[in-house]
Nucleic acid binder design. Structure first.
Length: 267
DNA sequence: AACGGAATCAACCGCGGGCAG
DNA sequence: GCTGCCCGCGGTTGATTCCGT
């Protein structure tokens, strides 16, 4: 199947899975130039990719504020609830779940939640199965109804087990605990040494607890000898970090600690 | 251990909307 | 108002991984 795109019509442009080297180039380019023009960005970055592909990679994977990890019960409930009212408007649903991309939510819906909702509609309310599920929910302390914080923000996530793929961000991320700080609001932020990553973040959130600004978000300095892939030695700890928010006693910090201790590199 | 089907998820594509000229 | 460019969205594909036999 050969389809053309107004965005990627040029032949010779690379397609498929992104390599760590391409990721590094893209991050470096956005770091220095920002991402106001996706069409021209690949040229500056030295990438044989179309702008659309770069944008997608950034928005769905490399963006610093992406929360990595399994969806929580709470997030599932919110997605289900919002899907009932909004339908397949994944971007709007994603807006309520900071750190989650529309693509991720969409995939999660099709792979997990769709079945879940079908089960719920098929099974009579008084069925033993549902009763059991309800009991489980209660036992786990999960409210079956969506729980939204005052500003519609989910602050927790369970860690997602890393997958062995060369282009996964979990492979790329190395953390420096010295650069992690916990704000008064319980939000973890990370300052990287190096130049300002982004003087004008394109990804902004009106949510105070989630705002990523140049003040609290300084990106890694991408030296030539700095390698983000776990397949090669890392010369500095000041590397890219998926931005996330946690409550103080959240398990997510344990996950971070594990990552920092290199558990994600054990493959 | 090997195989095949199922599940997962990153990435692709076309389309529509916004905006500048 | 029209046209072209660019961006973002949602549907879909396909490579990879998982899991049961």
């Amino acid at each position: 199947m050969v389809r053309t795109s107004s965005y990627c019509e040029k032949s010779g442009l690379k397609k498929g899975t992104w390599t760590p080297e391409e990721d590094r180039k893209l991050i470096a380019c956005i770091s220095s130039h920002g991402c106001r023009n996706w069409r021209h960005l690949p040229k500056f970055a030295g990438l044989s990719r179309c702008g659309k592909s770069c944008r997608l990679r950034w928005m769905n994977y490399l963006r610093p504020d992406i929360k990595r990890g399994n969806f929580t019960e709470e997030e599932d409930n919110i997605i289900i609830s919002l899907h009932e009212s909004l339908g397949n408007r994944w971007s709007q649903i994603a807006a309520v779940l900071p750190g989650r991309t529309d693509n991720e939510i969409k995939n999660h819906w099709h792979t997990n939640l769709k079945k879940k909702t079908k089960q719920v509609t098929k099974i009579p309310p008084s069925s033993p199965v549902e009763q059991k599920e309800t009991q489980n929910s209660k036992a786990e302390g999960c409210d079956p109804k969506p729980i939204l914080t005052q500003n519609h923000q989910i602050l927790e996530s369970t860690p997602r087990s890393p997958q062995p793929s060369s282009s996964k961000v979990s492979d790329l991320a190395i953390f420096d605990s010295n650069n992690m700080t916990m704000g008064q609001d319980g939000v973890t932020s990370v300052n990287f040494s190096g130049a300002n990553f982004w003087t004008e973040p394109s990804v902004t959130d009106t949510n105070d607890a989630y705002n990523v600004t140049s003040a609290n978000f300084v990106a890694p300095k991408l030296d030539d000898d700095m390698i983000l892939s776990p397949h090669s030695p890392v010369s500095s700890a000041e590397v890219f970090f998926p931005f996330m928010s946690y409550e103080e006693d959240c398990d997510g910090l344990d996950w971070l600690t594990n990552l920092m201790e290199g558990e994600h590199l054990d493959n």
